[in-house]
Design a protein around this nucleic acid. Structure first.
Length: 309
RNA sequence: GGGGGAAUGUCCCGAGCGGCAAAGGGGGCGGACUGUAAAUCCGCUGCGUAAGCUUCGUAGGUUCGAGUCCUACUUCCCCCA
């Protein structure tokens, strides 16, 4: 069985909304197929947050090697670009060692990079980023958008003025390269999984059940020390714009630590953010990625290994 | 026992000069997405494709017209006893 599956696939990819059981399924499959688990979650990469990002515990890892979990410092502005590089290496290592990569996570954009590749865009110099950010602070969203329209009309037309992060990025790219963001989209670095034999699963959890799991999980995280994690993170005084600082629960719990809201409100906010996120994950995988098998979480393992004899 | 206040769109909170299918928010749903993606942004949320239909605790009344005014009733809250 495991030999047959190994010969059939170069990698197993498991996506799904948060709290749908991806990590557990990944471990079961990795164990059955002589595999390793590779993370595809944009927040579980951060060292600073273990409990709050639901990163697998040593027990949950079940002796299976886990890669790209907690390997990034919170002060780093990690991104798809870095992820693609790290994941490409991790996958190559697994193949090298004769192991099956079992890639699990919830970040659609990361999967897209793995499966379809990512445009080659020169890194934007820090000075340019800072300049654009400064400009964004002076101008209204509309004015910034109008400014982009002058440099990159097509790019501006594609963006809603209120969508400031994207407007800023588009602006950064033109400022740094003199070319529009879209002009780079033609040539891309192929992802490590392009052209590979894949089993791609999306864990299609029941919405109502997922909601209650999310709410309960957040309470559990609080009981397991999430607040201490955030307290330590808060003490680092990092730039609030950094990705770690936006992880579900972090903004609310920081507000609590600084005395602006009650603990109860902070928790409610963390749960709500997580619920809304889960909803967006469904939308993403429904439309942005093709060829995935939507299976119920309970059927994930069987979907790969087949029905046990 | 007396006095005062409140009941709003079949999830919740909540605004509402007599012209309102009824502000706003939450929640939910749908959607966008190429380097901050657990972020960011957009749309829908009484029924109906539409003309239109049915809503604001209940029952009456005043009015061309009532969520808005009047009467009674029901429930809840507060104060005095």
């Amino acid at each position: 069985m495991s030999r047959a599956t190994l010969e059939k696939f170069d990698a197993i990819v498991i996506a799904g909304p948060t709290a749908s059981g991806k990590s557990a399924a990944a471990v079961v499959l990795a164990r059955a197929l002589n595999g390793v688990v590779i993370n595809a979650d944009s927040m579980q990469v951060y060292r600073d947050l273990h409990v709050l990002t639901a990163r697998p515990t040593p027990e949950e890892e079940g002796g299976i090697p886990h890669h790209l979990f907690g390997h990034v410092d919170g002060a780093v502005n990690y991104s798809v670009g870095y992820y693609l590089k790290d994941a490409t290496a991790a996958i190559a290592d697994a193949w090298q060692a004769g192991k099956l990569p079992v890639i699990a996570g919830g970040t659609g954009l990361y999967f897209k990079a793995l499966v379809e590749g990512l445009s080659d865009i020169p890194p934007v110099p820090e000075e340019v980023r800072a300049a654009v950010r400064a400009l964004a602070e002076t101008l209204s969203a509309e004015a910034l958008h109008a400014h982009l329209a002058v440099r990159d009309a097509a790019g501006a037309a594609r963006l809603n003025p209120a969508d400031s992060p994207r407007v800023q990025r588009a602006l950064e790219v033109v400022e740094a390269t003199g070319k529009s963001l879209a002009s780079f989209h033609d040539n891309r670095t192929p992802g490590p999984l392009v052209g590979k034999r894949l089993k791609k699963l999306f864990l299609d959890a029941d919405r109502d059940l997922l909601r209650s799991r999310i709410n309960a999980r957040f309470e559990k995280m609080m009981a397991e020390g999430a607040l201490d994690e955030v307290r330590a993170l808060h003490a680092r005084r990092l730039d609030p714009l950094l990705p770690v600082m936006r992880a579900h629960g972090v903004p609310g719990l920081i507000d609590y630590l600084e005395g602006r809201v009650s603990l109860e409100d902070a928790i409610t906010r963390g749960q709500a953010d997580t619920r809304r996120y889960a909803k967006r994950q469904f939308t993403w995988f429904r439309h942005q990625l093709e060829g995935w098998d939507w299976v119920k979480p309970a059927d994930a393992v069987e979907a790969v290994l087949g029905r046990p004899a």
